[in-house]
């Protein structure tokens, strides 16, 4: 069983295997299930992700009315063809948004690694898919590769916003996605780790400050940028750029930053954007609670 990224890379490279293989084999050993059983369970998760994206792209609205419909706007914008960044990048962003809009509307999603950060991994996957034309099996592998990196973060740091802030949720998701993009694009296990490190470094310190305690503002747009961050970091790693700080040390830094983060900025809706005048106003409008109550 690998305990950190260094061990994961060592296992993969010494046996000339992919990260996804190492994760599948570990899962087989832990659950005593066959490869087919483990893979088919992940296929079901892939189907849930695909359905959520399709639903979000058709357009949803949350109960509070704070989020919904942005995935549609972005898809229409892409169709016009006058975008500045890039088609795959924007497609990833819109599909990440689609997933989180469905999540905010209490729809069915697959947590990756959490519900609040559920957009990044599937969003990037279903965008990169159109560029790389993977088989369904390779798409399932993408989820195992993301899972392997998420596994290390969860066990060595945190994937909970209440414990470690948004860096632990969207930050982790973004790093997981970056690593999986690299594997799907034909990069080495080491390059996967570099992509994860580069991504996470740029998510450090991100606080969890949901307006009215809802997983909507700013969560949906944080997933958008998490997807964009993952795409760019994957390209950087594939170009041969490495992180001066090793991936495991970045994860450790994230953990320590989370521990010193004030409670007001860890999913309590007491600080950050939640405590802005507009944030408080929205909260009062949604719940009919006086603004002073929480202070």
């Amino acid at each position: 069983m690998f305990r950190n990224v260094a061990e994961l890379i060592e296992l993969a490279e010494s046996q000339n295997k992919k990260i996804s293989d190492i994760m599948i084999e570990q899962e087989m050993e832990f659950t005593k299930k066959t490869r087919e059983q483990v893979v088919s369970q992940m296929e079901k998760n892939l189907e849930v992700m695909e359905e959520a994206i399709e639903k979000g792209i058709r357009g949803v609205k949350s109960h509070s009315g704070l989020t919904g419909g942005d995935a549609v706007l972005l898809q229409k914008y892409i169709e016009k063809g006058n975008f500045l960044s890039g088609q795959t990048l924007l497609d990833a962003v819109s599909k990440a948004v689609a997933t989180n809009e469905v999540n905010a509307a209490m729809g069915t999603i697959c947590a990756t690694p959490t519900a609040g950060s559920a957009g990044v991994v599937p969003g990037t996957l279903f965008a990169v898919k159109d560029k790389l034309n993977p088989t369904r099996e390779e798409m399932v592998r993408y989820l195992f590769t993301s899972g392997a990196f998420g596994f290390v973060v969860a066990n060595n740091a945190s994937i909970s916003g209440a414990a470690g802030g948004c860096q632990a949720e969207v930050g982790s998701a973004s790093g997981m996605a970056a690593a999986a993009i690299v594997e799907m694009a034909g990069g080495t296990p080491s390059q996967c780790a570099e992509a994860m490190a580069i991504t996470l470094k740029n998510m450090l310190g991100l606080v969890c400050d949901p307006v009215a305690g809802l997983v909507e503002v700013p969560c949906v747009k944080r997933n958008a940028m998490g997807a964009a961050n993952a795409m760019v970091a994957a390209d950087m790693a594939l170009a041969g750029i490495t992180s001066r700080i090793p991936c495991d040390e970045v994860i450790d830094a994230m953990f320590k930053i989370g521990q010193t983060m004030p409670v007001a900025l860890r999913e309590t809706a007491q600080g950050g954007l939640a405590a802005t005048p507009t944030g408080r106003e929205l909260e009062a409008k949604i719940f009919g609670v006086s603004l002073d109550k929480r202070d």
Binding site: M23, E27, V48, M106, T108, A111, A115, V121, S146, M176
Partner: peptide, 16 residues
């Protein structure tokens, strides 16, 4: 388990 990370399938909005 990897399904602690990629999963669960759930009704939103928050895994925790």
């Amino acid at each position: 388990s990897v399904f602690d990370i990629i999963g669960p399938v759930m009704i939103g909005p928050s895994s925790s």
